[in-house]
Amino acid sequence: MKIVVNGNSQDFKGTETLGQLLKELDIVPERVAVMVNDRIIPKAGRNEFGLNEGDRIEVLTFIGGG
């Protein structure tokens, strides 16, 4: 299944939920905010959130800023 993560199209096999995708990408779930197709998916709902072919996912973290 092709999913666009932070602008890069990637192929994921056997990945069905957002929770699985974050795990596959070695991302600590508590340390990121996530949008799927411009919708914010709260931490509590990610494990059950099903993904579809072509979904656009944005994964964001805090960096230094004034």
């Binding site: 602008g7 991302i27 994964v59 964001l60 973290t61 800023g65 004034g66």
Partner: peptide
Amino acid sequence: VTVALRRFNR
């Protein structure tokens, strides 16, 4: 303390 949001960079 202020912080900024950016795309995750592995």
